[in-house]
Design a protein around this nucleic acid. Sequence first.
DNA 1: CTGAAAGCGCTTACAG
DNA 2: CTGAAAGCGCTTACAG
Lengths: 360, 360
Amino acid sequence: MTANQPKTVARPRLKELSHYLGLSRTTISRVLSGQAEEHRIPEETRKRVLAAAAQFNYTANTLARGLRSRKSRTIGIMVPEISEGYSTAVLGGVEDVLLLSGFFYFVVSHRHRSELLREYPSLLLARAVEGIIAVDSALEEELPIPVVSVSGHHRQQSVVNIELDHLLAARYALEHLRKLGHKEIAFIKGQSFSSDTRARWLAICKVASKLGITIHPRLVTQLEGTAPGSDPGRAATVQLLERGVPFTAIFAFNDLTAIGAITVLREAGIRVPEEVSVVGFDDIPSAATNMPPLTTVRQPMQEMGRVAAVTLLQMIDGNHEEWPRKPIRVLPTFVERGSTGIAVATPETFLTRTVVRGKN
Amino acid sequence: MTANQPKTVARPRLKELSHYLGLSRTTISRVLSGQAEEHRIPEETRKRVLAAAAQFNYTANTLARGLRSRKSRTIGIMVPEISEGYSTAVLGGVEDVLLLSGFFYFVVSHRHRSELLREYPSLLLARAVEGIIAVDSALEEELPIPVVSVSGHHRQQSVVNIELDHLLAARYALEHLRKLGHKEIAFIKGQSFSSDTRARWLAICKVASKLGITIHPRLVTQLEGTAPGSDPGRAATVQLLERGVPFTAIFAFNDLTAIGAITVLREAGIRVPEEVSVVGFDDIPSAATNMPPLTTVRQPMQEMGRVAAVTLLQMIDGNHEEWPRKPIRVLPTFVERGSTGIAVATPETFLTRTVVRGKN
DNA sequence: CTGAAAGCGCTTACAG
DNA sequence: CTGAAAGCGCTTACAG
């Protein structure tokens, strides 16, 4: 950071502009932050300032501005894993909104490590963020800034939840399977640390009972471990097969799990969807190009990101009374593709085949 | 931002700690920024300070710290699209390194819009970032801070390039296809705005001529448009089929393109790999679960991210003489999966079939 | 309509 | 070994 840097054009400061224009820093600052009107700065002056700013390519140092005004115009986004599709789809939506508003964002990913989940909020606070969006992450403490949680199911006062309508999601999937004649349905629940697991499972139980679908406990399994990708789904499916209870369909926690399940089924010589149907959740991009293409419950992830961002910005600049008091609900859609089909009459058939262990 | 906030525990400031400890802010600051040694602060004092900081959960306001010390401990990352696999895989690697070093990062995605490509560097500079990592993005100006470019092929003095060994990549793919007997190989080049397109294509031409593989101009096509996903790949493949020149293999610019190509081929009734082999590039997660699984040139994207971050941090804290003067090269690996097979003797066969237009 | 001065919360020469 | 004071680059009461 010394004289060794390549030749640089130093960013101009307010002081320089002030000299150049023969105006006080106060006036320039007012013009540039859009307060010309309320301070009755003449149009002529305003234009001169704007022109000079453009000419010297001046923009305020946001560190200084933030320190003084207590508005950093920055938020923090916490995700479990930056390199996975769900988080980044949400991020895409968030970005759409933020960038139009002049906000920037820090991303931190905690990879489900509890010490990171605990530390990151403080670190973000030290970075003077004005709000936090938590994606599928369980925050523990109440924070002094607004928080919007996507699929997080928080109960704190300062947290507004963006939630999928899980009942509708469950109804889509289960009615679809019932219509195809499926009665023996296996379920792969999410990892216990995923904040959506509980809500999604409760909805499934409720809808199943309403539709008269029996959930056999030995056909219920759960993802385990923090491995990214479809490995946990493979392991869960192997477990399901080993239990030896016949089933004609699997409702997976998400698409990655469904993809893993299909791989294991095929390795075991079981055809999808001819012998076993598989329903996913999320509709990540590869759901459509998977073979067979996934029938799945689509979460509007981009939209959830946009809604989260809009809500957070309103909370930041509005006052507390106006904060949403209830979760904001978004709706799933159902995407029928090739991984589901009519239930076979005798599901036991596949049990006679060799079960190939999934790599894990 | 007024009294309407939920009850908040204000973050303690240095002043408070100073009162509490009966020590100057100077001393406390020194202890907390690890300068106790060089200022010969007694171990006893050091411990008292650390204990108090822990007790009050004090961390320095990074805005103030950054403003004064000119070290924001923040970098900017520019990517084309936050919600696509390539960028986020690189991001994962970057994060591994940054978080250990106490750096945070802003992400901005320009979606190939030239005004954003132009503005973002200034906006990041205004945010006082100490360096920038550009992923697959062509920066125009020389910046006053260090820049590391992943797959960017920049020529500016202040930019260090992280590059894949494209010659090796091309050799892997072409030797593999030649070994399988392919002579009529079609190529789908990247979009003209993608900074890797040129380098990758030059390498292919060079290696092809060395291996005695003829590149038929009418078997060369190019991705067009900024649509994310595999749609551009579908369109390019449709074009290829319409030209009517027979081929037995396609070397696609990336995996998404390869996936799109396979879809179009199948829709046209052409079997992969029995009639046409397809080689991808990148090895994104869905390459393995695609049907058929993709044979592809794997880029070590996480590693590229890690290398980029390590390099940038060294540039930030080292002096200019020590900056790398050459591109840093990383090596691809080759992943043989199911989308390639032995070349058919009479590739013309597929041309008699109906060509189905890819949706686009 | 305009500006001088204070101050945001730190770090860092400088002095002892 | 320790601290008083200056200052990073802004914004914002306050005053006129």
